[in-house]
């Protein structure tokens, strides 16, 4: 993309393309960053994959119990969160575009919007967790469940629910930290049409976290809603 050639050197000024010393061209650097990010996202897929495997196995074994848990899942909050995350992905994509167009004001605006959506997601998630705690649905901490015939197996689902959404929420928190970093850098006018790799990379990460939720929502909230 960027075909401007800038002399290599670690002390290059902030406004210049940040070509690290060991790359020959900035195109090479960008290629490497992109491939690195995609590879990292593949490891993330496998990281979540372990939990999805467990989910698939137990759902096959204990479909009745898994379906019965849907009555305790707040589809409205979950659905709202899905919408919130999809919006955040849109604003994230717009932030990347703004960076590519060297539009600093829009870039900061969309990054902050993304952060607001992300925070909203976590707040809603927090309410859901609180409700589960109140309803004694946290495995290992006074778990109680009706209908009783599913009490044992429903615990497996709730364990997976907390593991999967918790791990997802942790990724969101990390994402918010990265976005904060981007906002600071954008404010310092680091990004421009010549250098926007970090925005794009963190954007990829954000979309990945979004996609994980797109899978989590139907799998965890809508099992019992098959009509």
């Amino acid at each position: 993309m960027a075909d401007t050639v800038v002399p290599a050197g670690p002390e290059t000024a902030v406004e210049d393309i940040r070509l690290k010393h060991h790359f020959a061209t900035s195109a090479q650097q960008m290629d490497a960053d992109t491939l690195g990010m995609w590879t990292f996202l593949i490891t993330e897929v496998l990281f979540f994959g372990g939990m999805f495997t467990a989910y698939v196995m137990y759902r096959n074994m204990y479909l009745g119990a898994f379906a019965s848990t849907s009555q305790y899942m707040n589809v409205v909050l979950g659905g709202t969160n899905t919408a919130v995350l999809i919006c955040s992905s849109l604003t994230m994509a717009l932030a990347v575009r703004a960076a590519q167009l060297s539009n600093r004001r829009h870039q900061i605006l969309f990054l902050i919007l993304t952060m607001i959506f992300g925070t909203a997601f976590l707040v809603i998630k927090g309410f859901e967790y609180h409700a589960k705690w109140v309803e004694h649905l946290v495995p290992g901490f006074g778990f109680q469940y009706e209908p009783a015939q599913y009490a044992h197996h429903a615990q497996i689902l709730f364990f997976l629910y907390f593991a999967m959404t918790g791990m997802h929420a942790l990724h969101m928190v990390v994402g918010l930290g990265l976005l904060t970093y981007l906002v600071v850098q954008a404010y310092r006018r680091v990004f421009s049409a010549n250098y926007f790799v970090p925005v794009e990379m963190i954007g990829l990460y954000w979309h990945f976290v979004d996609i994980v939720w797109i899978f989590l929502f139907p799998l965890l909230y809508l099992i019992g809603h098959r009509r």
């Binding site: 467990a54 074994m61 778990f143 497996i156 364990f159």
Partner: peptide, 16 residues
Amino acid sequence: AHVGIFDPNIGGDPIL
């Protein structure tokens, strides 16, 4: 948590 997905007491499978 003393409970989890590999726990045979609640139907979990240690072989997983």
